[in-house]
């Protein structure tokens, strides 16, 4: 029974990857259409960004750019297909995750494969939910691309069969600590994508080809992107703080000390400090915008390093990859 559920779960994972890949294509077609020369009126008056008060530099209100998100009718069909496919893929992935948990008779995040499976489900889930309120179609290609990559690598390289949970992980804190770590990763990952887009837009606006410029004209202003990245990082940062604290409490319960500079603890600390620096950067003249965006990218690179490299190549107390 267990192995049947396990195989079924893996089948659903493969299906989800395939559907996500299709959604990725749909979103990419949308981007291509946005870049095509079109008689559509200029979506974003060039001055909108310039007129807006500098973010957080003074008392500022809601920026008009938030409400001028273009809905290019030529692009909307591809976007609708992409969104629908993403929802479908997500349903498959959630099914896969639940079946994996049922097969293992525990939470489905006790090794690297399961962490990736549940974590990417959370990224897509967050993307879908935020999409309801904020127009995020322009991010579809990046989000789906990232998830196909992460989930693909995890399935190929990190897959391990279902095994019971080792004594070190038999704790209620596994549910809390790891769940929050995954949620934090989801938010920080989305913030990372927005920051990359921010940098592309800032550069492309000045130096891009006409196609690039047309494409970039359909995404929100750099102001709005910067603010979106900030909001997502804010949530991610608080969740990461919780991860760190929950981990420390668990460590004091399991190992008799709340902090011991284990390799994983070192990197969790490094990431926390990097994002603390990001929060400061958004409030410091000369660091707002471009440099803050780079910090967001460095921060997420550290998150990925902490997960993919530290787990596999470093020896420490957090050796739970299940890989041999």
């Amino acid at each position: 029974m267990t192995s049947y559920l396990e195989s079924l779960s893996l089948l659903l994972v493969y299906s989800a990857i395939a559907i996500y890949a299709a959604a990725f294509v749909a979103y990419t077609i949308d981007l291509a259409r946005r870049a095509a020369p079109a008689p559509a009126p200029a979506r974003e008056p060039a001055l909108a960004g310039a007129q807006a008060p500098p973010r957080r530099a003074t008392y500022t209100g809601a920026d008009a750019a938030d409400h001028t998100e273009p809905d290019n009718p030529r692009a909307s069909k591809a976007v609708r297909v992409g969104y629908a496919l993403t929802v479908l893929g997500w349903v498959f992935q959630v099914g896969a995750t639940v079946l994996r948990g049922v097969a293992a008779d525990r939470v489905p995040w006790a090794n690297m494969f399961e962490f990736s499976l549940t974590g990417t489900a959370l990224i897509i889930g967050t993307f879908l939910i935020v999409s309801i309120r904020v127009h995020l179609a322009y991010l579809g290609t990046a989000v789906l691309g990232l998830v196909v990559l992460l989930l693909g690598v995890a399935t190929v390289s990190f897959y391990v069969p279902v095994v019971p949970i080792m004594p070190a992980l038999q704790s209620g804190w596994l549910v809390i600590h790891v769940m929050i770590a995954m949620l934090a990763t989801a938010f920080l990952g989305l913030a990372f994508l927005v920051s990359v887009l921010f940098l592309i837009k800032r550069r492309g606006q000045a130096k891009g080809t006409p196609r690039i410029q047309r494409l970039l004209a359909t995404v929100p202003s750099t102001e709005a992107l910067d603010r979106l990245a900030y909001r997502m990082t804010t949530i991610g940062f608080i969740l990461w703080t919780f991860t760190l604290i929950a981990g420390a409490i668990w460590a004091s319960r399991a190992w008799g000390r709340f902090w011991g500079w284990d390799v994983k603890e070192v990197w969790t600390f490094v990431i926390w400090v990097l994002y603390a620096a990001y929060m400061h950067a958004t409030a410091t003249r000369g660091w707002r915008g471009t440099r803050a965006a780079w910090l967001s990218i460095v921060g997420f690179a550290a998150v990925i390093f902490n997960f993919a490299i530290v787990n596999v190549f470093f020896t420490g107390l957090h050796s739970y990859s299940g890989l041999k």
Binding site: W261, V263, V266, V270, V273, L274, A281, T284, W287, T315
Partner: peptide, 23 residues
């Protein structure tokens, strides 16, 4: 801000080289 970045950077060798306290 610079001190925070330095702090993050300074912690990294602690994960690359074995530490007396943890290993």
């Amino acid at each position: 801000l610079v001190l925070l970045l330095l702090l993050a950077l300074a912690a990294v060798p602690g994960s690359l080289i074995p530490q007396q306290s943890s290993d």
